[in-house]
């Protein structure tokens, strides 16, 4: 109970970002590096201009030192996101997106927006997508009941956002609900 209130209920967005940083991304290195062992595994070798898959944290680090270009994942493109947004707004269920898309997209757009085509358009699409999905999780709240709730395809950041009050309200409903006894 030594943790501050805000950390007790759920993990912070920054922690999620840290977890997402283990995700592998493609880069085009600008330097040569031998295969190197890290705690999470061995990555490399880097031989420009061959593409290479390394964790996001490493890509971020290299990018900030201007030693690589990050290749945006294929879902981080105007076409893909536009298609998902259309689907999101036209259908009642959540559309399928990479589980940690919000974190990865933010990190890449933060450090390597020059490597992404149409970064501004993508940013606004992501925002629209987020709002459309938020509206849906709000609807999920209406369907909340004391025992279960199913919102498939919800992504990590969204789960994290709704977790504190969904859990609390379900807890309250459990208390208020009374099993009609079979008599």
């Amino acid at each position: 109970m030594a943790l501050p209130q805000s950390l007790r209920t759920s993990v912070t967005p920054l922690e999620l970002e840290l977890i997402a940083s283990e995700h592998l991304v493609e880069i085009v290195p600008l330097i040569t590096m031998e295969k190197t062992a890290f705690i999470s595994g061995a990555y490399g070798p880097l031989r420009p201009p061959a593409k290479c898959r390394i964790p996001l944290w490493m890509a971020t680090n290299l990018k900030l030192k201007k030693k690589c270009h990050i290749v945006a994942p294929e879902w981080l493109s105007v076409d893909f996101l536009q298609e998902r947004l259309t689907r999101e707004t036209s259908r009642p269920e959540f559309s399928k997106l990479p589980f940690r898309f919000a974190e990865i997209a933010k990190v890449i757009l933060d450090v390597a927006s020059d490597d992404v085509q149409n970064a501004d358009k993508i940013k606004s699409l992501l925002k629209d997508l987020r709002e459309a999905r938020q509206a849906k999780s709000r609807d999920g709240l209406q369907k909340l009941d004391h025992s279960e709730l199913s919102l498939p395809n919800l992504c990590s950041m969204e789960i994290n956002e709704i977790r504190p009050f969904f859990i609390q309200s379900m807890g309250i409903l459990t208390q208020l609900f009374r099993e009609p006894s079979a008599e």
Binding site: S6, T9, S10, T12, P13, L14, E17, T60, N61, L64, K106, D110, V111, R130, M157, N160, E161, I162, R163, P164, F165, Q168, S169, I172
Partner: peptide
């Protein structure tokens, strides 16, 4: 509940809007 929801939404908003290049 109000406080929980507000705090959570604030945290996410802060994260989305912050561009913490300096941190990295």
């Amino acid at each position: 509940l109000f406080a929980l929801a507000q705090e959570s939404a604030k945290r996410i908003k802060r994260w989305h809007e912050g561009n913490d290049k300096a941190r990295r």
